[in-house]
Amino acid sequence: MAETAVATKTVKLVITRQDAPDSAPYTEEFEVPYRANMNVISALMEIQRNPKKVDGQKTAPVCWESNCLEEVCGACSMVINGKPRQACSSLIDQLEQPVRLAPMKTFPVVRDLVINRERMFNALKRVKAWIPIDGTYDLGPGPRMAETKRQWAYELSKCMTCGVCLESCPNVNDRNSFIGPAAISQVRLFNAHPTGEMNKEERLEALMEDGGIEGCGNSQNCVRSCPKGIPLTTSIAAINKDTTKHLFKKWLGM
């Protein structure tokens, strides 16, 4: 009689875990049944369904964050096989096993793979990454944006504040006050907008204070790591030019 049983394929995972923000991290190994087209999120869901380690012992289910599952929200960023990226777009078939998952330690770890990206949102507030149009009366339509400009500005607008560029940057750490590449690129985006441009000095000056753009050391890891392919180093250099011009204008009282 022919053999009908199929050898069950499994996915091996090694996960860096942490129970609380202050507790010590530790690793646990898992083995979950394989399904076609799995991604890291669905592997984590398998662990949630049956929270058992590879040795059969029960453990607390692994915590992670995710929302959109299509790489536009930035919530599920984590370190996968050594590189920071989104868990949703990391397909198991394309990953070396065991798949090693760890939180992005540049940010405070909340629990397991969950991190607190608040510093990125604070950075956006600091550089005023928005277009102020509120007023007490109708300001009317703003100036038009050239189509050629809109095309490259659109690329910058793809930023989802996922934190991968900060995780890969050697100058974003406890000893350094560097704001990180994402917010600098957003300054370029809002300074390119015809209405946003009216407040461009405010944004440049926010980057010319302690912990501003000067923290960039040109390692250029950010542009190599960005999941959205945003030209971060071009943005940084362009804002370097704008801040330099602004610096000389201020000195000369222009």
Partner: peptide, 24 residues
């Protein structure tokens, strides 16, 4: 002081410019 403020992460990110960053 600038050197002290930097992490060297060429182990994780073996890109050319990152090596130059570290070598600098």
């Amino acid at each position: 002081y600038v050197a002290y403020q930097s992490n060297l992460n060429t182990g994780r990110f073996q890109y050319g410019r990152n090596w130059f960053f570290t070598l600098q």
